[in-house]
Design a protein around this nucleic acid. Structure first.
Lengths: 220, 220
DNA sequence: GATTAAATAAGTATTTTTACTTATTTTTAT
DNA sequence: ATAAAAATAAGTAAAAATACTTATTTAATC
């Protein structure tokens, strides 16, 4: 197998060097590029198309979570491991919500770091056991959780055309046909047709069902 | 500080001995009793009132999860660490739901084991990073999780009259004013007024916002 | 270069919702 | 018992949405 190609984003050179040296003898991983701030990270990622991003939260220009969000949105197949000094609740929760595949405290051992990388490279998730408290508190609310649905990109959403997805987003922002038309500079009728078609494709018959379906599809 | 008093429940003597020897030099923890099946565990716990139970899932008579459930119900201040050979989804999820404070795979290192014990003794939770995938998949459903609100009955919802709450539910089921009217045997106009009023109270201006607000309020 | 798929737009008719106001009847609380 | 709050209902006019159909213009693909 080819090594997992990694981009490293952290504003401290020392930290980057440390991680690089940790990975030096690992044949499974290869750091192919670095960035010292969020904006740069995005640029580098667009160029290099790595398999995985290791990113610090606190960075100049654009923080790590923003970077993660962008990746989740625009490069959904790039994995994201968030490294942080903090086990602050907000950061952890935000990271998960932003779509991070892992969250490690900088105090983690090399062994755990590698474990996390392997898990994530294999398509899994790895969140430091130290923060499980936070995860449980924030996400395990009701008890029963009936559907362990694959949160993968569903077939349903992929039958939508790009335009339809775009319009769906606007609808989900609470926009009416008129608003949609206006913000996309198309006629209201067109907006209506798009709405009509996408609702048909998603097999829903009203906004509520649309919203619920969207929730199931993790669009909201 | 007094050491944390532990009861050990596992049907394999070897495993129990192993854990005991691991804890031998730890002044913070003391194994005060053991049990080799679930029923016995409950009996011992009732006698000894330990601070913490380390319990295997697979045991004769009564499995570990059942024991955990009983403790959560009847001895809520006793902490529970579930030890398992399996990272099976069901077990993990069930453990959490049953009220376990931690879940460790038997393959965990001594360091992680102690970390977990310390975390749990201190009132925290510790779930092996290896199973974070499962936790995330099962409990983190929708993306946005804006409000770690106490899912207590919010002020907003309590300003609604009962009738309005009832109608809100129907709306959230995707019912239009006509459907609402029909199923409550009231006139459509009345349904409209209720909808109008409740939306005003919740300060939303369309169905999407209503749905989102309802999600925040954990109504959906 | 031809087909196909996607995006655009208009038309039509029906149904709903919005955004009120007014007013009567029940409940509930003091 | 009486005032206040809640539930009921109707009216009106304007704005949107629904449920289609048809049709033209781009893009993409074969």
């Amino acid at each position: 197998m080819n090594p997992t190609r990694i981009v490293l984003a952290d504003d401290h050179e020392l930290v980057r060097d440390g991680i690089k040296s940790l990975l030096e003898n690992e044949t499974d991983f290869k750091v192919i590029a670095e960035a010292s701030d969020g904006k740069e990270a995005l640029k580098v990622i667009a160029q290099e198309k790595p398999d995985l991003l290791i990113v610090d939260i606190r960075m100049p220009q654009m923080n790590g979570l923003e970077v993660v969000k962008h990746l989740t949105k625009d490069f959904s197949d790039i994995k994201k491991l968030v490294l942080s000094m903090h086990d602050s609740e907000e950061y952890v929760v935000e990271s998960i919500v932003a779509g991070a595949d892992g969250y490690l405290l900088k105090g983690s051992s090399k062994a755990e770091f590698l474990k996390a990388l392997h898990a994530i490279a294999a398509g899994g998730k790895y969140f430091s056991g130290d923060i499980s408290q936070i995860i449980i508190d924030n996400f395990v609310k009701g008890k029963s959780k009936p559907s362990p649905k694959p949160l993968a990109e569903s077939e349903e959403i992929s039958q939508l055309t790009n335009r339809e997805k775009q319009i769906l987003e606007l609808i989900l922002d609470g926009k009416g046909n008129n608003d949609v038309a206006e913000s996309l500079k198309i006629s209201r009728r067109t907006a209506e047709v798009h709405r009509f078609n996408l609702m048909k494709k998603l097999n829903v018959k009203n906004l509520i069902e649309l919203t619920q379906k969207s929730k199931e599809l993790n669009l909201i």
